[in-house]
Amino acid sequence: MKTFLKILLTALAVIVLANILPGVEVSGYVSAIIVAAVIALLNMVVRPLLIFFTLPATLVTFGLFIFVINAIIILLADKLVSGFAVSGFFSALLFSILLSIFRSALFSLLKDNNKN
């Protein structure tokens, strides 16, 4: 149940960011939910592999290369979901940074509700 709620909150963040950012488009609510699920799956499967193979670059840049990995995950989600479009790398980079911020804020609200 908690995972499904996190996917719905991520879908909400995707919709909000698609309306704010000029280079990101999502066709509807169902596409946003699919994008959230695909991003969750890519973060579980592909992200650890990318981090492992780019570990030297991540260490040299003191972890800032993780932002590039997050942008690659967003671009992969763009290729996998037909109702989701990102115009370029820098749009994906900005989208991934803002999505991380939104998700952190929304998930912290979720944690506060579970404690009560």
Rank of each mutant, 00 (worst) to 15 (best):
L41C: 14
T3H: 00
G28I: 08
F89Q: 03
F52N: 14
F102A: 14
D112V: 10
F67W: 03
I72Y: 06
V38G: 07
D112C: 02
F89E: 11
D112A: 01
I97P: 04
A92Y: 00
E25Q: 10
S82C: 08
N70L: 01
L109V: 14
A92R: 07
S82H: 06
N19M: 02
I74A: 13
I73S: 01
I7A: 03
F107M: 03
Y29T: 11
E25K: 04
F65C: 11
K6A: 11
Y29D: 00
I97K: 02
L12V: 14
N116A: 11
D112E: 15
L94A: 15
Y29Q: 02
K79R: 03
V24T: 14
F107L: 12
L9Q: 14
T61I: 11
M1T: 14
G28L: 04
T58S: 04
L64P: 06
Y29S: 06
V45K: 01
A18G: 07
F89D: 05
G83F: 10
G88H: 07
R47D: 09
F90I: 13
F53V: 09
G23D: 01
L50D: 10
L75D: 01
L80P: 04
V30A: 08
G83N: 05
A32D: 04
S100K: 02
S31T: 07
L17V: 02
I97F: 13
N113D: 15
P22Q: 13
A36E: 05
I39F: 05
V46A: 02
A85I: 01
K6Q: 00
V24M: 06
I74E: 07
K6E: 10
